[in-house]
Design a protein around this nucleic acid. Structure first.
Lengths: 338, 338
DNA sequence: GTTAATTTCGTTAACGTACACGGAAAATTT
DNA sequence: AAATTTTCCGTGTACGTTAACGAAATTAAC
């Protein structure tokens, strides 16, 4: 039950703590049979290195770089959560540095990535929203042997320390289920996109795929699903939709509020709407009854978990789950305040 | 940015580290003005005690006692999660001891509580399912100044270090929303109870309250809600229900599978069912399409958080959120595997 | 068989904190 | 003014680990 210490191992083996240290760290030369003896005793004594002594001796702080957008409320929330959690972990030896950018400005994005690499951090937290740029970046991290954690979105062919986020596919699937509850043959639905901004966002594509597959899996007519680009169709949107009669809306981004803001309130009967992320404007819409369901990603929690992952990896030597799934948190008008 | 150490404070103040120690710990006598000087310097230098040095010096392990039922799959899951997380935290100085019991056997329950107190733990994890017994127990913990964490269920008039769990009321509310989606005037629903076992369970009562309030808040006829006790009505259940025509079911416990197991498969059209907790039998029912929604409490995560809370409190000196809400995780046939 | 090179190992000083022990200075008593 | 108490403070050790330094033992070279 009680763990053996280096000193005790040394005594039992009849050697000095220096040699024990050499054996346990594979450093320096040590005679084969004493090495074996030491390992034997360590194993029997159930040796694990004392995290507190080790950390105290090393007495170093690790810097974690955060590369995230800060161009809307959702990302601001996440940055804030990370920054608040960072304060707690500062006294434990983790120091965070932020490299935020505007997604529209791809130059600033690359510049921040470059600055990040120059700062030579011990770890990186990022959201691989756009596949091409992200793979490029993570490859550089791989060669530099800098561990990284993904939040919000995952990336194939990368080796993150951990991915923290929802299954976007399942999120889309669930959204479809909610919208079609009570309609055994499927319900006409608009998928609302905004091509001005999120056109390359993997997360959104996966949600849409999950949504469409629900229709397919349930044998619904795929023509029931229509897409619109609200960034340009905003003009003729209202007339078009109201001519079509009762209909549902799926907004696979955090911009569901824009839908309701414009024209929806005039529609009757009230269409069922599912959107994402508990940002203020969406909360207001939920309260007003304009949006029915919001699936939240809990960016605050994700930020916390990302930092915790590095703490466990760099300091406490605990192993980190390679995938830390975030639940699909559903909010309605009724359970908003909880 | 960099924190000052005791030694540095001592040097700046022109005293020894012993004096600084006395000031910072309010122990022993120290002249008022040197005390003030030391405090001043400590504050300016942004002193916080080095967790690693402190823990290393104290070199003690804290024992956390776990008082939970283990009479069904749900509680087994939670115990297992706690026990697995415990292994990770053992090397960090947390040792867990388990006091499990069968809820039917109230004698064994009291006995375990007694044994727990005799073991004089540094903290306790428990689920205050039954109000009377729990308040009695937590009062004893209060007088002994033993901190405790609630999982699953909260307790009024207690002062836990933290409560980790869902809002049962909101869970009931959400269940009602799911069952009534598509029925603007409300849908006839049975609340299915099992008085043989869970009769005093606070959690279940709160879920039912949330469920009923949804009907009330939406102006539905309260007579749409009926209750049945499946532990005794099992016989005439089938005939009664099928005579009534299409209907929904709300099972505010983890026993939704019992409902479907018996008789439901014969009913046509398939009634909509909402239950709780991702235990194996419920998973099977979800897969088979017999249950539509399961709201899971994620007992594994709760167990993890409970231990983490004690780690933060007893060792790292971080403050612990007094309420750590668990999301209402919704599972359907489709997002089960995720 | 002596010297040099190489392998193998022990000693030691930190890291920052907690706490026991006892000594010096000041205050009080005789 | 000496003796005694009280107040105040410094010294030292230990917690378990890391890592540098150099000593001892072994082997190789001639």
């Amino acid at each position: 039950m009680k763990k053996i210490t280096i000193k005790e191992i040394a005594k039992k083996a009849g050697v000095s703590i220096g040699t024990v240290d050499r054996v346990l760290h594979n450093r320096g030369e040590v005679a084969p049979k004493t090495k074996e003896l030491v390992l034997q005793i360590a194993k029997e004594g159930n040796y694990t290195t004392n995290v507190y002594a080790r950390t105290l001796k090393l007495n170093r702080t690790y810097t974690i770089a955060v590369l995230l957008p800060n161009d809307n409320e959702y990302w601001n929330l996440q940055n804030k959560a990370i920054s608040e959690t960072a304060e707690k972990y500062q006294s434990l030896g983790l120091l965070l540095t932020f490299f935020t950018f505007y997604r529209k400005d791809s130059a600033s994005q690359e510049q921040q990535a470059k600055k990040l690499l120059e700062s030579n951090p011990d770890g990186v937290i990022l959201a691989p929203l756009v596949e091409s740029g992200s793979t490029n970046f993570t490859k550089q991290l791989d060669t530099l042997k800098i561990p990284y954690v993904f939040v919000d979105s995952n990336l194939k062919n990368a080796n993150p320390l951990s991915f923290i986020g929802q299954s976007s596919y399942q999120a889309g699937h669930l959204a479809a289920k909610l919208l079609n509850l009570g309609f055994p043959h499927g319900k006409r639905t608009y998928i609302v996109r905004f091509h001005d901004f999120d056109s390359l966002n993997k997360t959104i594509e996966e949600r849409i795929k999950g949504f469409r597959d629900f229709y397919h899996d349930n044998g619904f007519n795929p023509l029931l699903i229509m897409e619109m680009d609200l960034s340009k169709d905003a003009q003729n949107f209202s007339s078009e939709v109201s001519a079509e009669g009762p209909i549902h809306f799926f907004v696979p981004s955090s911009r569901a509020h824009q839908l309701t803001h414009n024209t929806m309130s005039e529609l009757d009967p009230h269409p069922r709407i599912v959107g994402f992320d508990l940002i203020e404007k969406n909360i207001a819409c939920l309260k007003a009854g304009a949006i029915d369901f919001i699936i939240d990603q809990n960016p605050m929690k994700q930020g916390e978990l990302a930092i915790q992952s590095f703490y466990n990896r760099l300091i406490t030597n605990q192993d980190v789950q390679q995938h830390q799934p975030m639940p699909l948190e559903i909010f309605t008008k009724e359970n908003l305040i909880a």
